[in-house]
Design a protein around this nucleic acid. Structure first.
Ligand SMILES: [Zn+2]
Length: 299
DNA sequence: CGCTTTTGACCAGCGC
DNA sequence: GCGCTGGTCAAAAGCG
């Protein structure tokens, strides 16, 4: 689970808060050393000016960071979509009966309420038999929403129409079935079910692929809108823990398929994200660059 | 009036 | 075959 691929050490050097503070101090020291005899007033004004400058810079950096985070998120989303499409096209649409529907979590992405994407990819392979399986793209997310009902239409950017609800045997809470009603011919379906252990967690399983322009890209819960103060420092660690605890609820197989380097990439980048929420942007840049390379090589 | 939610019926796999 | 179970349909109800 450790990130061997992605160099996580990036963030440690670039962290704006830690970087700016000592910088300021050092300059302060220089000023004091150089102009220690200057009148206090002048020195004070200089310091104030410096502080203002630093503040502006910090704000600028924060904004940049926010933008980068948003870019990264959208990019990652696009990446996942692309991966899904590719897998879907590679594996021909054969019988779409329930028969071969061995749940292939080609990538299992967990998203908590902050919009941070963690992932514990698990390739459910059919070790038993079944040469060909109908890989309908199936992504299951774990998102945290303790508010009352499952029935609320989870605002994930699409418009869903509920068409069924059943009680499953292994889970006391009912499972709701949704269908994308944004476009008449959008085959995307979604199942939402509350987690068995934590009743404050919903597990949504998306299935299919939208064939309409995803408008409302904005309301994807990006918790990084607070510009003016701390960039994005949120209790990600804890939520990561819970998500990790919840995730293995389903059956995961521990082997990772060889052909899917991208899978590992996604995993790694997500885990790195989890690890260092403060500097997703740097990671995003690095990963996206590397990711493009890999994708080009692969395609 | 058009939409969504509700909810029981219905159907298809699967195990026996 | 039968029963169980997960997924879908569709009529009715609800809502703005
Ligand atoms: Zn859709």
């Amino acid at each position: 689970m450790d990130s061997t691929w992605v160099n996580t050490s990036l963030d440690l050097n670039i962290n704006p808060l830690n970087a700016t503070t000592p910088k300021k101090e050092s300059k302060e020291g220089d000023f004091i050393a150089g102009f220690g005899r200057q009148p206090v007033k002048e020195e004070n004004s200089v310091l104030v000016e410096e502080l203002a400058r630093i503040s502006t810079e910090n704000k600028k950096l924060t904004d940049m960071l926010t933008v980068l985070c948003e870019n990264y998120n959208s990019l990652q989303k696009n990446f996942v979509d692309l991966m899904r499409k590719k897998a879907e096209k590679e594996l021909l649409p054969s019988s779409r009966k329930r028969k071969a529907e061995s749940e292939d979590y080609s990538n299992m992405i967990t998203i908590n309420n902050n919009g941070t994407t963690e992932s514990s990819s698990s390739d459910e392979l059919d070790s038993t038999k079944k040469p060909k399986e109908t890989i309908k793209t199936k992504i299951s997310r774990v998102l945290r929403t303790d508010p009352s009902d499952t029935s609320l239409v989870v605002k994930d950017g699409y418009q869903w129409r509920k068409y069924g609800q059943k009680v499953t045997r292994d889970n006391p809470s009912p499972r709701a079935y949704f269908k994308c009603s944004f476009a008449p011919s959008c085959p995307v379906k979604k199942k939402v079910q509350r987690s068995a252990e934590d009743p404050s967690i919903l597990i949504a399983t998306y299935e299919g692929d939208h064939n309409h322009t995803n408008l409302s890209q904005t309301e994807l819960s990006l918790g990084s809108t607070n510009r003016g103060s701390i960039p994005i420092a949120t209790p990600l660690r804890a939520s990561a823990g819970t998500a990790a605890t919840v995730t293995p609820a389903k059956n995961e197989v521990e082997d990772t398929e060889a052909p899917a380097i991208q899978k590992i990439l996604a995993q790694q980048m997500a885990s790195s994200l989890t690890r260092d929420p403060n500097f997703t942007a740097a990671l995003a840049a690095a990963i996206s660059g590397r990711l493009n390379q890999t994708r080009i090589e692969k395609l």
